[in-house]
Amino acid sequence: MPTVLLIAVPYVAAVLFLGGLAWRVWTWAATPEPFRIPTTTGQQRSLAGIAPSRVESPSTTAGVVGRMLLEGLLFRSLFRNVASGPTAAGTCPDPVFLERKALWLGAMAFHWSLLVIVVRHLGLFVEPIPRVASFVASVDGFFQVGSPSWYATDVIVIVALGYLLFRRVRDPLLRYLTLPADYLALAVLIAVVGSGVVLRYVARTDLIAVRQYTLGLAALAPTAPASPGAGFVLHLLSVSVLLAILPFTKMVHAAGMWLSPTRNQANDGRRRRHVNPWNAPAPFHTYEEWEDEFREKLQAAGLPIEREDGRFQNPQAGGGERGAPPAAQAPLT
């Protein structure tokens, strides 16, 4: 039974992860982008004398790449975050905006630590251990505290996850809009990190047996370790759960954010025509129909018209047939 658990579970998880991810991305890719709708957060490229914002309002592919890298690597948009504080009652007090970098910092700390941790774990799956994995591990473990010494990212990721959970629970609005699924994501991540930390620092396991097992997993010829210990099983299971649910929960933003049309499109809507594959024809009220309807009035006002005499088309087919003319009293907009 444990053998099945240790061998079947990670493979099922990996298949769900990779397959799910591919399926999600394929679904998005298969859905067309009908319009070019970037959110412009900087000056457009227009007049020669006005400096365009090349990244915030990119008009070139390089600009878009820059914008996406800033988003993906440095969480540019989250960096803008401010708290709006117009809470004071009274007819019209001053607007107050407070710098709020904590969410950005927490998100950066969490995601980057996670990346470092993943790269560190690469050594378990590849023989010989990739240089990048040992380099990252040596930098991460630079400060020697404890035996085995603590990785900085282990501490950072725990603090960051704790903060992300704490803010959800503390802020009434955030608590209100949080779904059980949001707590699930945090819980799984905390389980992964927590079990990993326990496994390394408290209830240790035989690393050699683990690496034999993980290398076996990578080689598609796995053998379960003889006595993995509860800590390891817990870590493996939580990681498997994380991988398995990632494509089917909000965590799929990891892939989805790169496809966000408001960010990855160039702001060149008037420069280059964006083609909508399903650009459905929309019948509109043509000039001919219009002139037919208003010919007398146009003539009376002395405005030029196409046909001084007669009509363009059979009144039966005219646009005016579609319904009663709307009242000509309407809002000033």
Binding site: D94, V96, F97, L98, E99
Partner: peptide, 12 residues
């Protein structure tokens, strides 16, 4: 500095 500058920015 954080608190003072924020107050200065918001003019509060």
């Amino acid at each position: 500095t954080r608190v003072s500058l924020e107050a200065e920015r918001n003019d509060t």
